[in-house]
Design a protein around this nucleic acid. Structure first.
Lengths: 145, 145
DNA sequence: CAGGTAAATGAGAATCTTTTGCATTTCGCT
DNA sequence: AGCGAAATGCAAAAGATTCTCATTTACCTG
């Protein structure tokens, strides 16, 4: 069953070691799309795999270099990782409950390219995060007042 | 000369203490618009003020709450602070040299509001950072190859 | 303008996240 | 099966930020 993951790792140019296979599977099987290193580590403990947190960080960083995952720097000084499934998107996140939604807006994508060009930059990446209060949390707040 | 800063602090609802006055002046007088807590601390040391790093963090956080400064979470796990001069803008930053430019694009601003509404979020904030290589660093790279 | 009080500060310890050093283990290949 | 390079685990380190608590300061009152 770890055959598929093994293939993916080899294809990405990484040795198929046990920690890497496990971590990749966790990323693929988690119902959360955005996992912190700590999240991955906890999930590993639950599978009773004996993997150190240092390895989790190392592997996630390698995955990022290999293009398997994206690393996002959300607020609060810690990174979250997300499987690269080919389609770029931006994030809209709730400041109350932490919920994360994804969106893609071609107009904004285009404008960014134009802006980078205007300033003479060779754009390599961009990150757009809209913060707000999600529908559920708005309801909840209304109930209280 | 610290009269003006004192006024600003009072107006923001903060006691006009020496550390706060000094830090506000540093933010106003620095030629860099984006300062990390460490930057502010170093600048304080140079004015031979005896202010601890803990106070720098406390004061900057208060300034943020009071709306005097913005806190941005750039890559690499540390925050930078920037005086709130009334006009919102986004950032474009060079991944080679760390240079930061600012821009404001109405089209993007509008689209963000629309997207937040589509997803049912009450937008409270947003941050857009374009990363790339600035003109100077592109030149430098060309020279080398 | 002295005096009291709550708020603010300094110093260092504590915390949190992430990285590093190094001895040991594992992978991939022969 | 066996070798060498690459990967791992552990613990220690590092960097950023927050907290604790005794001491000091700003501001209000008399």
């Amino acid at each position: 069953m770890s055959e598929i993951s093994t293939q993916e790792l080899k294809k990405a140019g990484l040795k198929a070691t046990l920690p890497r296979i496990k971590i990749l599977e966790i990323l693929e099987q988690s119902e959360m799309r955005h996992l912190s290193a700590e999240d991955v580590y906890k999930a590993l403990l639950e599978t009773s795999e004996d993997v150190g947190i240092a390895t989790v960080y190392r592997v996630l960083t390698q995955f990022e270099s290999a293009g398997l995952v994206f690393r996002h720097n959300f607020e609060g000084g810690h990174s979250v990782f997300e499987l690269n499934e080919g389609h770029h998107h931006d994030h809209i996140l709730c400041i109350k409950c932490g919920r994360v939604d994804e969106f893609l807006d071609e107009t904004i994508e285009q404008r960014q390219k134009i802006i980078a060009r205007e300033y003479g930059y060779a754009m390599t990446d961009h990150s757009l995060i809209i913060q707000g209060i999600c529908p559920e949390c708005q309801e909840r707040a209304k109930g209280k007042e």
